[in-house]
Design a protein around this nucleic acid. Structure first.
Lengths: 347, 347
DNA sequence: TATTAGCACTCTATGCTATCGAGTGCTAAC
DNA sequence: GTTAGCACTCGATAGCATAGAGTGCTAATA
């Protein structure tokens, strides 16, 4: 059964009201506040139909009705008009993002902060993934007789370092030679690639440095491995307390415990697809703990390659229109900055 | 007025019971469960005295009594017997800390995780402060024609890096010269020291590199400035939900919002003194939001210099005995590892 | 045939009252 | 100085009546 225009209008009105008030919506409210030109009785009948069709839910007999996930999905897909972002918000975004442009991680973290500030929901972002990038430069630096610093720089503008302890003394010269060789050999390759037969090849090439190579290369593997961990930024976590659906301690606890578990959150973000904007509503989320939440994510990319995600999570009763436009704007700006600044030799 | 032995015993019993049960303690409970050899009426009289002296508080006339901050202070200072840590716990600490010993930040973060796991409270830790350390090594590495990587390594084993964009091309050779000079000049000096008249001196010394120096040195200042930010690790934040005193949403919110604000938490930790173990009970804390919490912190140091703090925060009704011994053990272990491993050329 | 007014019905929320019980403080006896 | 005994206090809980928001159904209406 198709939804006629009136049903759609009523549904939209209910969703609108519920998003604002967080209270079950009754027929009289709709009749009075949204001029649909019909009486509350008519609306009542339509609402009954909408419930049967799965768009509405009634907490109990004598209560108003609440939109279901299905309703929100319809709303997001076709009913909703995207709110255009205010010029003040636009300014805040521009200003906030222009602040920190040197460290890409800072930039992402900053974006997440702005996102939660503007939306008043919890924002989530994953930093550029180190392992998925390509090697731009690797450098071995002797710190003292026994310590070597390994710095790995990626084409996504991330530099990571670790310090290692060697068993034997290592000469500056040896390290330089190895550094040069590694750069020549590995530049442009994915970081993941480091680790296969590198040691063997190196020894073939420079047998005289065998001892040093045997010490250094395993450490490089190890460094790469250790640096693989994905960074997650969560901001405005306590914003959920602003929503009456989390006035219940056990619900707040469930949500916060979930968000506190970095692995779960990263996995959840990874699972969302690679579209520009991805919206998961309620039960569409895989994790039980957030099945009454909606997640709106955008990707950000460098050189046309997606390198991370940023988004917002909140109750399904979310101001989709506002949030989507803000997420869109921020991700657009973010992408611009990334590609202008980091790509063309910037930074 | 001095507290006689019986009063102390009663007070101890009340504290003990309240820490366990989180319920106001009545005279009958004490008389029955703690064999003090006196009747409930006697205890009632003593409790009345203890209240007058400020050690106990009565939520309302017909309720039992609750220890005050003053009582906890007395308890911690003289009544409490330190629980010796179980061998299982000791094992967990040893095992947990031996896992990650290369990156000092990892080590601290790990310690914080173990701390919250073992205590079931929220653990807090500040990473070694970059600016307070001394320079061990600085290195400028050309990434491509226009990009330069600055790596700064401290004597506390932290390496930080930033990538900079130059206006003009820079030669490998120039950078090397500057690197060498900087190392010779700055090694062993506090990081904070970088930034005074460095540029001027450098130009004096190597006039031919003037252009490069003019470009590079301000960036180094900037890098140092940016890296100054203190890292904070908080673990087990949602543990507060386990305590009935936070069954009230607004209280949970207040606590969590406080903990979410990194600046406040860092400031709070900084404010606690430099003693081995520092205990702040309730109102002894500066911040309003945690005046019903207790904070137990320990320092960790390298080369005899305190470089960070680690601790636990929870309701004043805290299992002090257990927490203190765990914090002590972890900080001892942490210090051992730091000084064995990082100090004598290790890591 | 679609809409609507009207009404009985349902169910939650709120406030009131009575009751229970844990705990105190005081008094008098030991 | 200690304790048994008792009156008193006060929060917590349960029960009950009431109000009000909202529904669903029916019959009248356009």
């Amino acid at each position: 059964m198709d939804l006629n225009e009136r049903k759609l209008k009523i549904l939209q009105a209910i969703i609108h009201s519920y998003i604002k008030k967080a209270q079950p919506v009754g027929s009289r409210t709709i009749a009075k506040k949204y001029n649909l030109g019909v009486s509350s009785a008519t609306i009542r009948n339509e609402m009954s139909d909408l419930e049967e069709l799965g768009y509405l839910v009634q907490p109990h007999t004598s209560a108003g009705r609440i939109p279901s996930d299905k309703a929100y999905r319809l709303y997001v897909d076709s009913l909703m008009e995207l709110k255009s972002i205010s010029s003040l918000e636009r300014k805040k975004i521009k200003k906030g993002l222009s602040k920190e442009i040197r460290e890409i991680e800072q930039l992402i973290q900053n974006s997440a902060k702005i996102l939660s500030k503007l939306t008043n929901y919890t924002s989530l972002a994953i930093a550029p993934q180190f392992k998925k990038s390509r090697l731009k430069h690797i450098q071995l630096v002797p710190i003292d007789e026994r310590k070597v610093l390994v710095v790995i720089v990626t084409d996504t503008g991330i530099a990571k370092n670790t310090i290692f302890m060697m068993d034997n003394d290592i000469t500056h010269d040896h390290l330089n030679k190895i550094t040069n060789y590694l750069n020549a050999k590995l530049k442009g390759h994915p970081i993941e690639y480091i680790g296969s037969s590198l040691e063997y090849e190196l020894i073939q090439e420079m047998y005289s440095l065998k001892n040093t190579i045997n010490q250094v290369v395993p450490l490089i593997y190890q460094a790469v491995d250790e640096l693989e961990e994905v960074d997650l930024y969560a901001n405005g976590v306590t914003n959920i307390f602003n929503f009456p659906e989390y006035n219940d301690v056990s619900k707040a606890k469930a949500f916060l415990s979930f968000i506190e578990d970095k692995n779960l959150v990263v996995d959840m973000l990874m699972k969302s697809g690679l579209q520009d904007i991805e919206i998961k509503i309620g039960k569409e989320n895989c994790y039980e703990e957030v099945k009454n939440c909606s997640l709106i994510t955008a990707t950000y990319s460098l050189n046309g390659k997606t390198i991370g995600k940023i988004g917002v999570i909140g109750p399904t009763r979310m101001d989709y229109s506002k949030v989507i436009s803000i997420v869109k704007t921020i991700s657009l700006n973010l992408n611009d900055i990334l590609n202008q600044y980091y790509n063309r030799g910037g930074r």
